[in-house]
C-alpha cells in the first residue's frame, strides 16, 4: 500500500491525524451499530453518528490539511457539513415514516397504532 502523506508541518500533521482518526472511528462505530442493532427502528439511530461527529472530524482534518498546504484558509468543506446537517434528518425521518406506514398497514404490534386521525381522514378523501 502507498504510504505517502502530504508534507505538513509537525503540529498540522498531528492535528490532521487526530481529527481524521476520531472521525473514522466514530463513523465505524456507527456502521457497526447499523449491523448489530436488532430492529429497524433501533438501526435508524446508528448512521447519525457518522453523519454528525464522524463527518465533522474528517472535514476538520481536510480543512486543516488544505489550509496549511495552500497557505490560505480553505473553507469549502463547510458546504458538505451544512448540506449533510440539513439532508440527513430529512432522509432518516422519511425512512422512519415509510417504515412506520408499512408496519401500520400490516398491523404490526411493535408500532404505535391505530392510525392517527389526520391520516385516516386523508385516506377517506382519496
Amino acid at each position: 500500500m502507498m504510504m505517502n502523506a502530504p508534507d505538513l508541518p509537525g503540529w498540522a500533521a498531528l492535528a490532521v491525524s487526530f481529527f481524521l482518526m476520531a472521525g473514522a472511528i466514530i463513523t465505524f462505530i456507527g456502521s457497526v451499530g447499523l449491523w448489530r442493532l436488532e430492529s429497524f427502528y433501533a438501526r435508524v439511530h446508528a448512521p447519525t453518528l457518522g453523519a454528525t461527529l464522524g463527518t465533522g472530524g474528517v472535514l476538520i482534518a481536510s480543512m486543516i490539511c488544505f489550509s496549511v498546504l495552500q497557505t490560505r484558509p480553505v473553507l469549502h468543506e463547510v458546504l458538505i457539513a451544512v448540506f449533510l446537517t440539513v439532508t440527513t434528518p430529512v432522509t432518516l425521518m422519511l425512512l422512519a415514516r415509510a417504515a412506520l406506514h408499512r408496519d401500520r398497514v400490516e398491523a404490526s404490534p411493535d408500532v404505535p397504532g391505530p392510525r392517527l386521525p389526520w391520516e385516516r381522514k386523508r385516506r377517506q378523501r382519496q
Binding site: H45, T48, T52, P89, A96, R97, L100, P117
Partner: peptide, 18 residues
C-alpha cells in the same frame, strides 16, 4: 426536528398539528 434527528439516539417521526 433537525435538532432531534441530528443528535443520535432520538428521531422525530411525526407531528400532529391538531
Amino acid at each position: 426536528s433537525i435538532i432531534l434527528a441530528a443528535t443520535p439516539g432520538t428521531l422525530w417521526i411525526d407531528y400532529d398539528p391538531a
